[in-house]
Design a binder for these strands. Structure first.
Lengths: 111, 111
DNA sequence: CAGAATCCCTTGGGATACTG
DNA sequence: CAGTATCCCAAGGGATTCTG
């Protein structure tokens, strides 16, 4: 039959085809993603810095969200082979283009 | 101890306090909400009409999303006591203000 | 017509421990 | 320092059935 199991994926596909907005929302709807993007834009671009400002997040979750943002092409990851290894995150052009939209959203909700 | 159980709500509270964006994202991150808002703005503002354009959605889920949008003050619900009862949905000012932002998001993702 | 009630399953996110 | 591996739980969504 394949009913309950496939409907979830099928519905998702339907949404993607219906409107590009759904794809866009998917990209930014991770629980911490918007905040991660904002902090990276403000030079909080190291794993430990992010962990500090996003205090209650777990390593696992933070790592997952970063990986997803990277595969969505919103951020890039640069590994620097220093003594204690260091990793810098930076926004891509697409990531930067999202900032004013997030700003609009924030103002929208304040009204 | 209250650990695993309370952390979810605690993290959510943290996000809300950190930035207004999280509250805004919460409002529009239901799976069908963006599409519902768009269709209502285009006069597909009846339950059955919405169900038709959002083909694979279930009654239950559609009803839930509508109720959430209503309590977020994005749409209003008007019950008209005709022979087969009829219900009209309309966007509030806040709901209308969201449309251009959704448009921006859509264009952003197309780049 | 427009839902509410009930039940079930997938998924996102969290806790903890371990690694290059 | 910057993660990954495992395991687990709550919540969002979906299917189906029933109602004013």
């Amino acid at each position: 039959m394949i009913k309950a199991t496939s409907s979830n994926a099928a519905n998702k596909a339907f949404l993607y085809q219906s409107c590009r907005i759904n794809a866009a929302l998917d990209v930014i709807s991770g629980r911490w993603k918007a905040l991660i993007i904002i902090h990276i834009s403000e030079a909080q671009n190291r794993f430990s810095l992010l962990k500090a400002v996003l205090a209650p997040v777990s390593d696992q979750t933070l790592g997952r969200q970063l990986k997803e943002l990277e595969s969505s092409k919103l951020i890039t990851k640069t590994i620097i082979a220093e003594v204690p290894v260091r990793v810098d995150y930076h926004l891509t052009e697409k990531g930067k283009a999202l900032l004013p939209i997030l700003q609009d959203l924030s103002e929208w909700n304040d009204r």
